[in-house]
């Protein structure tokens, strides 16, 4: 598991960061692998676009390529921190989810509002034995999905949440 300092810092006083209290659960450190692969792929795409401009002989081609390389490197370096920023809490009546370094967001979904729960596995995640839980409510903008859960944990969590949603069922 990740260091407790990242998910549950001792005290936020002095910092202007958005912090919501509670005991945050992190996701599997293996999820860094997925993030690294996706960073590399998006970095390669960016560089390919830049290379096209270089080949065409545009004056800004090399600058673009440099920027693309820098962005890809930053994405790659920050991948572990991005993964450590993902966290969730199962509270008494709702699930709280957080994610993001620069753009940090915290979403709370009452169990009774969950309409269905998906388990998704991408190719890289499947190779690492990871799964993603996706929650759907009646609001399209909720958009909560917990990536990087160990397969068996994901199944258990799904069953637990479906059970909770059933006992706390409310109308629309």
């Amino acid at each position: 598991m990740s260091t407790p300092d990242d998910l549950n810092p001792a005290d936020g006083s002095g910092s202007k960061r958005l912090l919501v209290g509670g005991e945050w659960q992190g996701v599997s450190p293996k999820y860094v692998g997925v993030e690294v692969v996706s960073s590399i792929i998006s970095g390669l795409v960016l560089c390919a676009v830049a290379v096209v401009f270089v080949v065409m002989g545009a004056w800004f081609g090399w600058i673009l390529l440099g920027v693309a390389v820098v962005i890809a490197a930053v994405m790659l370096v920050l991948a572990p921190r991005r993964v450590r920023s993902i966290g969730y809490q199962l509270r008494a009546d709702d699930l709280v989810f957080r994610r993001g370094i620069m753009f940090h967001r915290v979403v709370s979904v009452p169990y009774g509002r969950m309409q269905l729960i998906d388990i998704n596995r991408g190719p890289v995640a499947r190779a690492l034995g990871l799964a993603e839980l996706k929650f759907v409510t009646a609001a399209a903008s909720t958009g909560v999905s917990i990536p990087g859960l160990v397969d068996s944990d994901a199944n258990d969590l799904r069953d637990q949440l479906v059970g909770l949603a059933e006992t706390r069922r409310v109308g629309l």
Binding site: K16, L18, F103, V107, A138
Partner: peptide, 28 residues
């Protein structure tokens, strides 16, 4: 009684100003 979920979020500019954004999610 109709709220589906709640969100609090903060981007870089909001962080500089020590602010957050609150959103209430309802049906579309």
């Amino acid at each position: 009684a109709r709220v589906q979920s709640l969100r609090v979020s903060q981007g870089p500019v909001l962080r500089l100003l020590d602010l957050v954004e609150l959103a209430v999610h309802t049906v579309a």
